[in-house]
């Protein structure tokens, strides 16, 4: 474990907590893409499937973190699609999730480190995570604005994988550990946030709201 990975996981936890707080406090999921949250839930379940296959004692933080990720993302989906369904902006959350799931699944069958069920699921989860934020970015481009709290969520969510890139550089240099699939997907994932990062740093940090040119 290195500082980059630690802060990456903390940033990820922060993103999940910020979104939950936003929805719970405002009792509304306006401006939040339900599809992105569904895709993240699928990512966690397919990536941590080993938790279900053979029960492991919760002695170490890694197992606990995985359970937190899975339960928090499922709970977020529950809030969006059930509890606060009336505030879900389905009209603007219109990116076809199938266009992300099918290519990720196909690619996972073609490019993977080992052709076995667990490995294919893990690879699918990595590829899907790289593009899972697209419906959320698409929704913001459709509505033309993002609530400040949602911008903080996106900044924490984008920073998590950016910090993981630093973690991979660190591990390559000090542990000569390389996980090519995770690295390539992580770079793609972080690149997708670039224009948002620019808007966040030039606007939100100065207290302005993100409003996209219509």
């Amino acid at each position: 474990m290195n500082i980059f990975r630690l802060f990456g996981d903390l940033s990820h936890l922060a993103a999940i907590a910020i979104l939950l707080l936003k929805i719970w406090k405002t009792r509304s999921c306006a401006g939040v893409s339900g599809k992105t949250q569904l895709l993240f839930a699928v990512c966690f379940i397919t990536r941590y499937i080993d938790l279900f296959l053979h029960f492991v004692s919760l002695y170490n933080t890694e197992k606990v973190m995985k359970l937190i990720y899975i339960s928090a993302s499922v709970f977020t989906c529950y809030l969006i699609f059930f509890k606060f369904k009336a505030t879900y902006d389905g009209n603007h959350d219109s990116m076809r999730a199938e266009f992300l799931i099918v290519p990720a699944a196909g690619l996972a069958c073609l490019i993977n480190t080992k052709f076995d069920a667990i490995e294919i699921l893990w690879t699918f989860s990595i590829y899907l995570e790289a593009v899972a934020i697209l419906p959320q970015l698409f929704l913001i481009s459709k509505t033309g604005e993002a609530e400040t709290i949602t911008s903080h969520y996106l900044f924490a969510q984008g920073s998590y994988r950016a910090l993981y890139i630093l973690n991979w550089i660190y591990r390559y240099h000090y542990e000569s550990h390389v996980d090519t699939i995770a690295i390539v997907a992580g770079v793609v994932q972080t690149i997708l946030y670039c224009d948002f990062f620019y808007l966040y740093i030039t606007k939100v940090v100065k207290g302005q709201k993100i409003v996209l040119p219509a």
């Binding site: 990820h12 480190t113 995770a182």
Partner: peptide
């Protein structure tokens, strides 16, 4: 089912 030790990250 041996978990792939290669993926030791979240």
């Amino acid at each position: 089912m041996i978990r792939n030790k290669q993926h030791d990250e979240l």
